[in-house]
Design a protein around this nucleic acid. Structure first.
Length: 150
DNA sequence: GCCAACGTTGGC
DNA sequence: GCCAACGTTGGC
């Protein structure tokens, strides 16, 4: 899961009460579908910092709730307000994310790209990818975590 | 349903 | 700050 550290970084998640935060504001259908259809409570996720000095994976979090409607879609004062969303059939769902741990070091995007061959078809290193949430296979997960100790 | 215009993402 | 790569919007 990508986040801009200037807006909400891993440190922010860590300092939240219960170290948990609703992942609101996702307004991309593909990303929403990953949260809604693929993520299960307890699943681990990589926390990725984007749009910053050294973009890359900085830590691990986990899914802490089932999918539920994103309240910001109904809040006219929110920048994520979506007037087209029907309260009886909310368009946007989210899950809560809970801090697990920092990585010992940042796995920078540049480094991850160096391992693109070993990672196979990994959404993050596909050209032009702007998805904020993307799947990681078990083998990709293990491989990336293995880099942490190198 | 097509597609040009526009807005956003995010690396560099 | 630039700009490539997308996704979305809206006129037709």
């Amino acid at each position: 899961m990508k986040s801009e550290p200037d807006a909400f970084g891993l440190e922010d998640l860590k300092s939240r009460p219960k170290q948990t935060e609703p992942w609101d504001g996702v307004r991309n259908y593909q990303a929403r579908n990953f949260m809604r259809d693929r993520m299960k409570v307890g699943d681990q996720v990589f926390f990725y910092h984007s749009n910053c000095k050294v973009p890359g994976i900085v830590g691990i979090a986990k899914v802490a709730s089932k999918p539920y409607p994103d309240p910001t879609q109904f809040d006219p004062d929110s920048k994520y307000y979506d007037p087209k969303s029907d309260p009886d059939e909310p368009r946007w769902t989210l899950i809560d994310v809970k801090f697990v741990r920092d990585l010992k070091r940042t796995l920078s995007l540049a480094e991850i790209k160096d391992h693109a061959d070993a990672l196979g078809d990994f959404a993050l290193v596909r050209k032009g990818n702007r998805l904020s949430i993307m799947p990681v296979s078990e083998s990709q997960w293990d491989y990336l975590l293995g880099l942490e100790n190198q």
